[in-house]
Amino acid sequence: MATEHVSLTIDGRSVSVPAGASIWDAAARLGIHIPVLCHDPRLRPVGVCRLCVVDTGERTLAAACVRPCQDGMEVRTDSEEVEAHRRMLLELLLSEQPDRSAREETTGDDALYALARRYGIREILLPDGGEGTPRGRDASSPVIDVDHQACILCDRCVRGCDEIQHNDVITRTGKGYGTRIAFDLDVSMAESTCVSCGECVAVCPTGALTHKAVRGLRLEEGA
């Protein structure tokens, strides 16, 4: 049985993909990397960070990681409106980040910071929501540092724990500004059923979940 295909254009280039494929996947085929924080090809897409929004000519922007391609669709991934939208989102997210990214200072791959650099953001005209780290930390695990202040609630750790490792330990708790990730029925990481596989650290895009062993080291790869 042949799979059905749909054809569309992305930034003026045509591409044909199996029906049901997301715009993000279709763009990736063309080598166009749509910026993203909550999405990872190994995880079920959820479309919560809204950074991957694209212009499909509709009334509102669409999240490329969850929106399926349609035949004849014309997608713009880098219009002025789209870029302004992403910039605003980044500023909002960054305004609540701690002053330093634990990920940036250890494994050096903070995806939020990488985007901030890409968009040339150096200062933000918003109140500093990260001051004094009001969201708190959990340093109970011998191997994993949890900095709730750096968490952007992208749910990657929740899905990594559930869908990749099938340990079902991480969840969300709280409402509104107080929302944060939690372990089991909201106990500390060390007390929880966490088996320290480290998948949450591997999938986390920010300094929220980092390896303790490398804290304080900034790595330069390729010696």
């Binding site: 330093r100 050096g108 650099r117 200062e123 109140p127 500093d128 900034r218």
Partner: peptide, 11 residues
């Protein structure tokens, strides 16, 4: 206002 220049420069 929040400044990031330092952290972002990776220094």
């Amino acid at each position: 206002m929040k400044r990031f220049a330092d952290a972002l420069s990776r220094a």
